[in-house]
Amino acid sequence: MSFFSVKGLSKHFGGLVANNSIDLDVEKGEIRGVIGPNGAGKTTFFNVVSGFYTPTSGTVEFKGKVISGLHSSKIAKLGAVRTFQRAALFPEFTVLENVIIARHLNADTSLLNAIFRHNTKAEAGNLARSKEIIEFLGLKDEQDNLALNLSHGHQRVLGVAMALATEPELLMLDEPVAGMNSSEKAVMVGLIKKIRDTWGITVLLVEHDMKTVMSLCDKITVLDFGEKLAEGLPEEIINNDKVIEAYLGADDIVA
């Protein structure tokens, strides 16, 4: 039994087949990349496995439990959390407040506690842990700034911080370096490695940027036209004829 396992996953939109019977197994502690040319079905795949879409057929299993069809919030509760391609954050809260809000699953969220504030211990723990995460990801200097005032790179890092705040075992990243300049990309790559190496969190990421995927991932799955085209170590993928063919004409191989 794999840690995270996708079996025969298909997603249709009306007559359009966005994903066609995809299989994928991720081992605990792995960093797995899912790549593919434009329109290969990466985003759909990501939205299905993170619970934003219900699959047309097939299942997604996490720690031996079927999670496909569950609400995204429920999947997060089970320990698999996703980030967004866009800069998703609560703009009018500070960075620290954003991370504290994301500690929802580890907090006393009863109305009684809201009124009487009796559970101060849990909240103190959340504050300490939030600060720890912020420091770990190098956002300490931005801690008290409003999220809307951060640079794009920092906003994306905050997205990861909020995901980490839920204490996940599996971190699913949707194009983590999209729209970043090369130094921001390097920072993000370093952080993802650090998250896995220090905290042992498994990472599944969908990414367009080949260079990032090659330098970051232990294993890579390639999608094309909604189907799995190839799977293997980065060096195998880069020399795979089918993959090269799929990307031919596309200008972004090892861009």
Binding site: S50, S73, A88, L89, E92, A165
Partner: peptide, 13 residues
């Protein structure tokens, strides 16, 4: 502010 983000961090919207 962002109901999708809320779902992703475990808030049942």
């Amino acid at each position: 502010a962002d109901s999708e983000l809320c779902e992703s961090i475990g808030i049942n919207v």
